Amino acid sequence: MYFKTTYLILMFIILLVFTFQSGRGSDIGNSGAGNGSSNKSPESYITFENIGHISYYRNESQLQKIARLEKAGKFKDLIKTLENYVSNFGITNFRRDSGLLWKLAQLYEKTKQTAKAKWLYRLILKHTDKGIEYVKKYYDSIAKNDKEYYVPIDYYYKLIEYRKQIDTLRPARGKLNNMGTSVNSDYEDYGPAINNKNNLMIFTSKRNREDQLKGVKINEDLYWTEEKDGSWTDAQPLENINTKFNEGSPCLSKNAEKLYFIRCKTPQGHGNCDIYVAENQGKNTWGNVQNLGKKVNSRAWDSHPSLSHTGDTLFFASDRLSGFGGIDIYYTY
Rank of each mutant, 00 (worst) to 15 (best):
T6F: 11
T6N: 10
Y7D: 09
L8M: 10
L10Q: 01
F18I: 14
F18A: 15
F18P: 02
F20L: 13
F20N: 06
Q21Y: 13
R24F: 12
G25N: 14
G25L: 12
S26N: 13
G29S: 14
S38V: 12
N39K: 12
E43P: 05
S44A: 11
I46Q: 04
G52S: 08
H53S: 13
S55A: 14
Y56N: 09
Q62R: 11
Q62C: 05
L63W: 05
Q64I: 10
R68H: 08
G73N: 07
L78A: 00
T81I: 02
T81K: 01
L82H: 00
V86F: 02
N88W: 02
F89P: 00
I91N: 04
I91E: 04
T92L: 11
N93Q: 05
N93W: 00
R95K: 11
R95I: 06
D97M: 02
S98V: 07
G99A: 12
K103V: 00
L104E: 03
L107H: 00
L123P: 00
L123C: 05
T128N: 06
K130W: 09
I132N: 08
E133G: 12
S141R: 11
K144D: 08
K144M: 10
D146L: 01
E148F: 13
Y150V: 12
Y150G: 09
V151Y: 15
Y156T: 06
Y156R: 08
R163S: 12
T168V: 15
R170T: 15
R170L: 14
A172Y: 09
L176S: 08
S182D: 14
G191I: 06
I194G: 07
N196M: 09
N196V: 04
N199E: 11
L200N: 02
R207T: 03
N208C: 09
N208K: 14
Q212I: 08
G215T: 03
G215C: 04
G215F: 03
Y223F: 15
K228V: 13
D229W: 08
G230D: 07
T233N: 12
A235M: 03
I241T: 03
C251I: 01
L252D: 00
T266G: 07
T266I: 10
G269H: 03
Y276H: 06
A278V: 00
N280R: 09
N284M: 10
L292E: 01
K294A: 15
K295T: 10
R299E: 13
R299P: 05
R299Q: 13
S303W: 07
H309D: 12
T310H: 10
G311T: 07
L314M: 05
A317T: 14
A317N: 08
A317G: 07
S318Y: 00
S322Y: 05
G323H: 05
I329S: 09
I329Y: 06
